[in-house]
Amino acid sequence: METFLAFVIGGLYAAGLYMMMRRSIVKLIIGLSLLAHAANLLIFTLGRLTRGEPALIPPGGIRPERPIADPLPQALILTAIVIGFGVQAFAVVLIKRAYQTVGTDDLDDMKSTDTG
């Protein structure tokens, strides 16, 4: 399972970077969200893939009865997904406004701030 996920993560990173190198701003945003997914999956895989119960101790006990799954990577991914949701929603609004104002979705035509 780890090997499979490693390839998936690598594929996601490759696809994300490829999309970001395209000139269209829409593809740029798609690339960015792919990168975020790759990072989330990376955390998931590195947090050890184990099958286990929720990390809860029954009332009166002092330690879990069966092997538990580490809840922390899941909490991290959940937080990262929520943040990514907000950021990407903003990015979509931004590229729409930029498209309307500049009149193109080609990054090569958006150089006015570099050449001054």
């Binding site: 929603a89 903003f90 979509v92 609004v93 729409k96 406004r97």
Partner: peptide, 13 residues
């Protein structure tokens, strides 16, 4: 609030 601000902004523009 956040979701609707963004969606309304997208839909109105």
């Amino acid at each position: 609030g956040v979701t609707l601000t963004i969606i309304f902004a997208l839909a109105e523009a």
